[in-house]
Amino acid sequence: METAFLLEKLILVVVIFTITLVIAMYSTLAERKIAGFMQDRHGPDRAGAFGILQPLCDGGKFFFKEEIIPAGAHKGLFIMGPVIAIITACISSAVIPWGQTLTFGDTTITLQVAEVNIGVLYIFGVIALGVYGIMLGGWASNNKFSLMGAIRAASQSISYEIGLGLSLIALLMVTGTLSIGEIVAQQSGFVNWNIWSQPLGFIIFVTCAFAECNRVPFDLPECETELVGGYHTEYSSMKLGLYMFSEYINMFVSSALMAALYFGGYNFPFMHDLGLSANWITIIGVLVFFSKIFAFIFFFMWIRWTLPRFRYDQLMRLGWKKLIPLAIANIVLTGVIILIKDTFF
């Protein structure tokens, strides 16, 4: 039993890890393709059909480029930076439920690596840890531009974590649980999706998620026009690759979170009326979940070519003076509505 359980989880971890890395890899291609589409040009189309081999070429290039560690850099922390960034990016997907259960004879497999009753808080902890990768890398580079990028990253991440947390508190008031598995299970069907009860919370969550992922319009830590390259100015070769990779993995995980917390995760409309067996519903559910995730990744890239970058003071004003009061108002509103519902209906 114990061995079988461990083996099952190990296979699941390896599969999810592979899927995460492949999606992150192809997100780089998708980003450039979508940029091409938005700007009415082709995008990369030389390596393979439709540029399908482009990510492999990029990866190979990253591995074979010369690796430079600046003389004035703090060597240990310079290497630690990208390592922390990629590890924190990869471990955050552990609590996301990818689907319901699959049944083969007597064995049932839950498509979630770890069902912990504090799943939402776990994600927060990992996000909070993620900023260390950027900060240490930026500081250890011993470069003014890198340091500026690192400082921007730290202040931005801390400011928007508050908005993110407050927007989620309203969601937790509705769902009454901190377990992501349970939150998704509650949203069975279509009308139970949390987006219908928490539209304002979702908008705040998305905005803060963009800021936490350092995506445009909040990509100040790596603002090329002001900071040469941002916190990774001094990085070369695969270390730079790992930073970029961790950014794409973060984007994938936050898309998965948005889909799971607000858009019903693996639930899809009329899932119980189709008369399919449980296994088929699970498989379709996983596909539906991934298509929701891809829709959000597309949304991330769409925004990149729609909105210009914020200025630093605008970023801080938006975070502290607009999003946080809005999130608190959302909490109060949610509380009042829950109270009215409980007393009168």
Binding site: F124, G125, I127, A128, L129, V131, Y132, M135, W139, I151, A154, S155, S157, I158, E161
Partner: peptide, 9 residues
Amino acid sequence: GAIMVLFLF
């Protein structure tokens, strides 16, 4: 996640 990041900052 928060206090130590501020220290480091």
